[in-house]
């Protein structure tokens, strides 16, 4: 893949101090984001998806801090690459937030200030990041409203959030993010709070805007259906680490990590009747204690002995596809993926 990188994360560690204990939320993640792609990060609740992306914007909670590694942002046109982990002052973050990296939150019902018209809220972003006057800002705001698919923007401009439905509000939130004119758009579970028909519309909108505004998108989700729909590449996250990363096809049709297998197995299958839906046994590991070996091993019935002793490195499956599992080591015994995964592989049940 000879695409240009816009964000390069290496061995990033994030920790939280909670009541005298240290929570190791992100355990040495390395990840590249390429220009113009949609990268999906999937994982269960508490795997650190949000924390990981928030750290790019300096939006970690007060007790959280980066404890090592680097995250280099190279998308700025008019300035040098920025080492995001070294940005400390609020003033410097303001040059990144919105301006370079913008974010869409999960719940559109609470993401907008109830007391201001949506026009004003979008315009705030325009005025902050585009050097234009008031009337031009309004003109652009109306255009953004059109772009995100809101009819009759002139009238909508002066309406308050409570006069919009959930899906419409999410469109407004997206308009705010776009109005910042960013390079990277982080979508933190943008469709979780919406009903299914609206979800599809919002995903289409994100796809469309990505081309129109040349955005690189990081999409956080726990919904594999969403991923299959929209993502170019998928990163599977477990216990603060990315255990497998590859193109959409790599992950769905050629998954290698037992955790990815487990995730795929727990997808509801069409045409399968009378059998219980698969669920992964056990609970995610306690991040307060140090994790030895493969974090998923205790929940993996086919775990190898080495999984409990040594943390696996990345093994490359193909130039686009790598996974952190000892199964890929040449010396490992052959372990077959669960039947559902093989089925997907062969017949394409998705």
């Amino acid at each position: 893949m000879n695409q240009e990188k816009i964000l390069e994360v290496n061995d990033l560690d994030i920790k939280f101090e909670l009541r005298g204990k240290t929570l190791h939320a992100i355990r040495g993640i390395s990840l590249d984001l390429y220009k113009g792609e949609i990268l999906a990060i999937v994982g269960e609740s508490g795997s650190g998806k949000s924390v990981f992306t928030k750290s790019f914007m300096g939006l970690l909670e007060r007790n959280g801090y980066v404890d090592g590694g680097s995250a280099v942002y190279s998308g700025a046109e008019d300035r040098e690459n920025v080492e995001l982990t070294a940005v400390k002052r609020e003033k410097d973050w303001l040059k990144i937030r919105g301006h370079e990296i913008a974010m869409i939150m999960q719940d559109p019902m609470t993401s907008l200030s109830p007391l201001k018209t949506i026009g004003v809220q979008i315009m705030e972003a325009v005025l902050l990041h585009q050097k234009v006057g008031h009337s031009e800002a309004k003109k652009r705001t109306l255009k953004y409203l059109m772009d995100v698919g809101i009819q009759d923007p002139e009238k909508r401009f002066d309406q308050y959030p409570h006069e919009f439905s959930g899906g419409m509000r999410q469109r407004v939130v997206i308009a705010i993010a776009i109005a910042c004119n960013p390079q990277i758009l982080i979508c933190d579970e943008p469709t979780t709070a919406l009903d299914v028909t609206i979800q599809a519309q919002i995903l289409d909108l994100i796809k469309e805007l990505r081309h129109k505004y040349r955005l690189s998108v990081i999409l956080i989700t726990h919904d594999l259906g969403v991923v299959a729909n929209i993502a170019d590449r998928v990163a599977v996250m477990y216990a603060g680490d990315i255990v497998e990363i590859g193109t959409c096809e790599d992950i769905f049709y050629d998954a290698r990590h037992p955790y990815t297998w487990a995730l795929l197995s727990s997808l509801p299958q069409v045409g399968v009747k009378g059998t219980d839906l698969f669920s992964i046994p056990g609970t995610p590991p306690n991040l307060y204690t140090e994790i030895k070996g493969d974090a998923f091993a205790p929940r993996n019935p086919q775990a190898l002995k080495i999984d409990f002793v040594k943390r696996p490195p990345y093994f490359e499956v193909s130039p686009t596809h790598k996974a952190k599992t000892w199964l890929l080591d040449p010396r490992a015994p052959k372990v077959d993926p669960p039947p559902v995964v093989s089925k997907i592989r062969n017949g394409g049940l998705l």
């Binding site: 939006l59 303001l94 990144i96 937030r97 974010m103 609470t110 902050l128």
Partner: peptide
């Protein structure tokens, strides 16, 4: 949340 969004947009 709206405060977080306002911060995320660079205010």
């Amino acid at each position: 949340d709206y405060v977080k969004l306002a911060k995320a947009k660079g205010m």
